[in-house]
Design a protein around this nucleic acid. Structure first.
Length: 258
DNA sequence: ATGGCTGTCCCTGACAGA
């Protein structure tokens, strides 16, 4: 069973690429972020025609998340947003797929450490932490996938000195990431890959992708109960090379579990 | 190189992304 995450930066623009990618990489679960589309216009017909079911939490212009699941798999207990947290921004969706709790999240960017958006980011992270803790208690086999907008370590950044204590890399953000790990989660990519210069996002500008100057901010965390099933986690750079790409590229986790 | 690029909206420039 494969689980993947991809910030598509507009599903309207990227739908053909999502469908093309699924043809060659028919994952069982695909979490999407930054749909940038309102709830009613989600392209469910095209997605169903491609052999997938979906749940989504859309929003006009910004944010928006979805979980695509191959037809035939059991989808249960869908949650939209973080229960009890009245957040106007639609960033979280969760569902249980064949017994595995899948949380797809588009973490707050934060803009810069002196921005009100950064304050919101830290608050949002504390809300997410509580939600993940409660989810783990109910569903021990859990994966948290998404665009974290956090580079966990200096080796996840092309220019650690330039990014030092900047947004995505600041100590409070990295501490929040570590608190998620402390709940009993593991960064699945680092189980299998110890290399530096492994990125999931590259700025559109200044040929950053061609020069491999990026950051690793898209992650798949697996719970202690799920971790023994993890077989592989890879960053698929192929869609980033396509015409008119998202600035993020997919991350794919392979599980032994059905 | 403090700029560069991309997407959305009703707006042809501003905002947001990371």
């Amino acid at each position: 069973m494969k689980l993947a995450t991809w910030n598509v930066n507009s599903l309207k623009v990227r739908l053909p690429q999502v469908l093309q990618w699924l043809e060659t990489t028919p994952v069982e679960v695909l979490c999407l972020q930054e749909l940038k589309m309102d709830q009613p216009v989600f392209p469910i017909d095209e997605i169903e025609a491609a052999g997938y079911q979906a749940v989504w939490f859309g929003q006009k212009t910004y944010n928006g998340v979805a979980i695509l699941v191959r037809k035939g798999l059991l989808v249960e207990d869908v949650e939209y947003g973080i229960p009890g947290y009245d957040d106007e921004q639609r960033r979280v969706i969760a569902a249980t797929v064949n017994g595995i709790r899948v949380i797809g999240a588009y973490f707050v960017n934060g803009e810069s450490v002196d921005s009100p958006k950064y304050t919101y980011k830290l608050h949002w992270l504390s809300q997410l932490e509580g939600y993940v803790a409660a989810s783990l208690a109910r569903w021990p086999r859990l994966a948290l996938l998404g665009d974290y907008n956090i580079a966990p370590e200096d080796r996840d950044v092309h220019d650690p000195e330039g990014w030092k204590e900047q947004v995505l890399c600041s100590t409070p953000e990295r501490d929040a990431f570590k608190r998620l790990i402390g709940l009993g989660l593991t960064d699945s990519f680092r189980i299998f890959n110890d290399e530096d210069r492994q990125y999931s996002w590259w700025d559109y500008r200044a040929a950053m992708f061609r020069r491999n100057l990026g950051v690793r901010i898209d992650h798949i965390l697996v719970s202690d109960a799920l971790r023994p099933d993890a077989l592989e986690c890879v960053i698929d750079k192929v869609p980033r090379k396509w015409e008119r790409p998202s600035d993020h590229t997919p991350v794919v986790l392979t599980l032994a579990a059905q």
